[in-house]
Computed example of a mutant assay.
Amino acid sequence: MRRRSLILAAVPVGLVTLSGCGDEKSDSSKASDSASSAASPSASATSAAPPPKIVDGPLPAITAGVKFDEKPTVAKGSGDPSSQLAVKTVIAGGGKVVAEGDYIQANYLGQIWDTAKVFDNSYDRKTPLVIQLAEGSIIDGWRYALTGKKTDSRVEFSVPPTWGYGKEGNSQAGIKGTDTLVFVVDVQATFDAKSSAEGTDVAQSDAKLPKVSTNTDGKAPKIEIPKVDPPSKLVANYVIEGDGDEVAADSSLLVQYEGVVWDTGKEFDSTYSRSALTSFSLSQVVKGWAQGLTGKKVGSRVVIVIPPSLGYGDSPPSGSGIEKDSTMVFTVDILAKM
Rank of each mutant, 00 (worst) to 15 (best):
R2W: 11
R4W: 10
L8C: 09
L8N: 13
A10W: 03
V11F: 11
V13Y: 08
L15F: 05
V16R: 13
L18W: 11
E24T: 14
E24M: 13
S28I: 14
S28G: 08
K30Q: 14
A39L: 15
S40N: 09
A45R: 09
A48D: 15
A49Q: 07
P50H: 06
P51W: 08
G57W: 10
P58L: 09
P58N: 05
A61N: 08
A64S: 13
T73S: 12
K76Q: 14
G79V: 06
D80F: 08
D80L: 14
D80H: 07
V90I: 10
I91Q: 05
G93L: 05
G95A: 03
A99C: 12
E100V: 09
G101P: 02
Y103R: 09
I112G: 12
D114I: 03
A116T: 04
V118G: 01
F119R: 04
D120I: 04
T127P: 02
T127W: 13
V130A: 08
A134M: 10
I139K: 10
I139E: 08
D140T: 11
R154T: 13
F157M: 05
V159P: 02
G166Y: 04
A173W: 13
G174H: 09
K176I: 03
T178R: 12
T180M: 11
L181M: 15
L181T: 10
V182H: 10
V185Y: 10
D186M: 08
T190I: 07
K194G: 08
S196C: 15
T200M: 14
D206L: 06
S213K: 04
N215T: 13
N215V: 14
G218F: 14
K219H: 12
A220M: 11
V228C: 10
P231Y: 05
K233I: 11
V239N: 02
D243C: 04
V247T: 01
A248K: 13
D250V: 06
S252M: 09
L254W: 04
L254I: 07
Y257E: 03
G259N: 06
W262I: 08
D263E: 12
G265H: 03
E267F: 07
F268M: 10
D269K: 07
S270T: 04
Y272C: 02
R274T: 12
S275C: 03
A276V: 08
S281R: 04
Q284K: 10
W289Q: 00
A290Y: 01
V298N: 00
S300W: 01
V302A: 03
V303W: 00
P308Y: 02
P308I: 02
S309D: 09
Y312I: 00
D314S: 10
S315R: 08
P316M: 01
P316C: 01
G319W: 04
S320W: 02
G321W: 00
E323K: 14
D325T: 02
S326E: 03
D333F: 01
I334H: 01
K337S: 10
M338T: 02
M338S: 07
M338W: 06
